[in-house]
Write a protein that binds this DNA or RNA. Structure first.
Lengths: 167, 167
DNA sequence: GACCTTTTCTTGAAAGTTGAACTAGATAGA
DNA sequence: TCTATCTAGTTCAACTTTCAAGAAAAGGTC
């Protein structure tokens, strides 16, 4: 169905199927968990929160739109809408980029930073409770390795390197 | 911020932060990957595909709406919309439940089953390529255990057992 | 400079999701 | 039976995401 596979499809083994189901199950519940927690405590979905975190860690608490989109792994279009919303909420401000007149910088406002400071403990708590408090140090290390491998494999990386990093 | 935490927030260690970033990164890319693959090859998002798979494995290729929602970990509302869409596409049909006049059964149509049969190999391929072909058997086993633990921890389970499984 | 291509970001419409409100049928107690 | 409550599923409005254009500036190349 994809490329160049002529023979029998290589179905998943019983164990693989079970792991795959567990993966889907866990990641779905986790995403719901975080979305609900942040919607409740910060009034925004998880992905928006992630954008603010990115900004808070950037040099002058600001980033070019494209760079932010790239780091957050979302399309520019989606980011445009998201920043518009965050701007309406007062957490982010747009500024023209001095060096490139096409460019925009998304800047975390003081209110945004303050909101982040307030909600960070609760968020860390939720993450801990859902994941790190339940895993052995051994498992945490292993999970890290596995996720690195998977992420690397899915990265648009390498050969067609000049693609816009996503589709 | 959540309940009953009086002291200092327990921030994540450097390793935990790095694992958490890798987790978010990998799961985001994976979801995008599958959504794109299935949108292309089956004309629907990953979650809709999952609904059809559930139906295909159910006794008479049908399930009560609530049960389907529960198994797929989505709200009834979302399922209503999803089934309406799948009905329009011809993959699913609704039938009144004989034993409970409030109830509806979502039934996988022959066309739906056929579509599933056609797109399954490509989907398995995508999953393999993204995950199983990159991990050692050791890692696969470990991932399974970890995801089990995380999922179990997030399950609405236990104490408030009569909650509608989600919020 | 004139021309073409690329990059940056936005927009608008369609599709999907959410949470609350709502209808109809089931259930249980007096 | 009458009433209150619960459950199944849908619907609406607000919001988010996607996809396909599109406007504006930047970067070649001649």
């Amino acid at each position: 169905m994809t490329t160049a596979s002529t023979g029998e499809p290589r179905w998943l083994s019983d164990e693989e199927q079970s792991v795959w189901r567990a993966y889907l199950h866990a990641t779905t519940l986790m995403e719901d968990h975080l979305d609900r927690q942040l919607q409740r405590d910060a009034g925004m979905p998880h992905i928006y929160y992630g954008l603010l975190v990115q900004l808070s860690q950037a040099p002058r608490r600001q980033k070019r739109m494209t760079e932010l989109a790239k780091d957050a792994k979302i399309t520019r279009s989606r980011l445009s809408h998201a920043v518009a919303r965050l701007e309406r909420s007062g957490w982010v401000r747009r500024e023209d980029c001095p060096s490139d007149k096409r460019g925009q910088n998304a800047v975390l406002t003081d209110e945004g930073f303050e909101m982040l400071r307030r909600s960070a403990p609760g968020h860390v708590d939720a993450v801990r409770q859902a994941m790190f408090d339940r895993l052995t140090p051994e498992q945490v290390r292993s999970l890290g390795e596995i996720m690195q491998v998977v992420a690397a494999g899915l990265q648009p990386e390498g050969t067609d390197a000049d693609l816009p990093w996503l589709r």
